[in-house]
Computed example of a mutant assay.
Amino acid sequence: MHVAKLCLPAVAALAFSVPAMAQQMPGGTPSVDDQVDQLDEMVDLDEGQKAEMSNLLTQMQDKISGKEQEAQQLQQQLGEQVQPDYDEAAIRADAERLGDLTAEMTADSIILQSQIEGVFTQEQREQLDEAMAQRQEQMQQQMQEQMQQQQQGG
């Protein structure tokens, strides 16, 4: 179970944050194939696993993209409703729908993570566990270095 706790955030980060960051960069979102290739580099997937990962990621992207767009629209609408003559009912309705969308996307994410977890072998889970532990350690070191630099410079 310890492996699963560390593995799930790694898969979630790969499945969701990489495309989100890529949308901000020139060139757009990496393809499902690129995402599968990244996983393959991390844990050496076999052909069946690659096909299953590709299918899962494609289904999730299709499911999530419409919800993300709707959530962005709702956030924009809510921002536009900040005015002296506000409509409380409309604000509450939009906020409730935004909450529902967030809950749906969270559930979809957990389901995808669970499905992806089922595709990995025990050895691959261990590889991900090790990679995530190294990544977390590197991030902590970077944060400590940044804090030291700020303290020295400030």
Rank of each mutant, 00 (worst) to 15 (best):
M25D: 02
P30M: 11
D34S: 02
D34M: 11
D34I: 02
V36F: 04
V36A: 11
D37T: 06
D37K: 14
D37N: 08
L39I: 08
L39M: 02
D40A: 07
D44G: 08
D44Y: 10
D44N: 14
L45T: 12
L45Y: 02
L45N: 14
D46W: 00
E47P: 02
G48H: 12
G48S: 13
Q49N: 00
Q49T: 01
Q49H: 00
K50L: 01
K50V: 03
A51R: 12
A51F: 04
S54R: 14
S54Y: 10
N55W: 06
Q59N: 12
M60E: 14
M60Y: 13
Q61S: 14
K63A: 13
I64Q: 15
Q69P: 04
E70Q: 15
Q72H: 03
Q73T: 00
Q73Y: 00
Q75M: 05
Q75S: 10
Q76E: 09
Q77I: 02
Q81G: 06
V82T: 04
Q83F: 05
D85C: 06
D87H: 09
E88R: 11
A89F: 05
R92E: 08
A93W: 04
A93G: 04
A95Q: 11
L101C: 09
L101Y: 08
A107E: 14
A107Y: 12
A107K: 15
S109G: 12
S109Q: 15
I110N: 11
Q113F: 01
Q113G: 15
S114E: 14
I116G: 10
E117Y: 01
V119Q: 10
F120M: 15
R125N: 05
Q127V: 07
Q127P: 03
D129W: 09
E130H: 08
M132R: 00
Q134F: 02
Q138K: 11
M139I: 10
M139F: 00
M143F: 03
Q148N: 12
Q150W: 06
Q150V: 01
Q151P: 02
